[in-house]
């Protein structure tokens, strides 16, 4: 019998992503943590649509049980949003590094104090 153990693992992964976002002092690593956070949310969604023993939602004659296509569609959109956010954030990091010479949060704050 299947249970909800997958949800526990996904939540644990999600929280490690969130922890990296908040705990890291380095802006680049925060971004990496953010992508782990997002990936685990994607898995939570997809796991909602699984039907045991069913086929992928591509209609074929002779198959009558399919997995739920709606979470798939939503997550396709969310993946795109994720890479869009990441590209933008990387461009921001390039500019920050060039303007300040560092990507460390504390060092950044210190540089603006004396400016």
């Amino acid at each position: 019998m299947n249970g909800v153990a997958h949800a526990w693992l996904i939540v644990a992964l999600m929280m490690s992503g969130l922890y990296i976002v908040m705990a890291s002092a380095h802006l680049f690593k925060k971004l990496i943590g953010l992508s782990v956070f997002q990936v685990s949310v994607f898995m939570l969604y997809i796991s909602l649509g699984v039907v045991e023993g069913a086929a992928p939602p591509i209609v074929e004659p002779g198959v009558d049980a399919y997995s739920n296509p709606l979470p798939h569609v939503l997550i396709l959109t969310a993946i795109v949003v994720g890479i869009a956010t990441m590209a933008l954030a990387l461009a921001l990091l390039v500019r920050i590094r060039r303007a300040y010479g560092t990507l460390d949060e504390a060092a950044l704050a210190a540089k603006d104090e004396d400016a």
Binding site: L18, V21, L27, K30, L31, L34, F37, Q38, V41, L44, Y45, L48, L70, P71, L74, A78, V81, T85, L88, A89, L92, L93, R95, I96, A99, Y100, L108, D112, A115
Partner: peptide, 28 residues
Amino acid sequence: RALPASFRYLIMGTVGATFVLIGIGLLY
């Protein structure tokens, strides 16, 4: 100084949007 400000907003905003996404998923 707008650059780090924007980045911080991006991180906070994306975490917020992802929370919204989690909420929508659980409601679904």
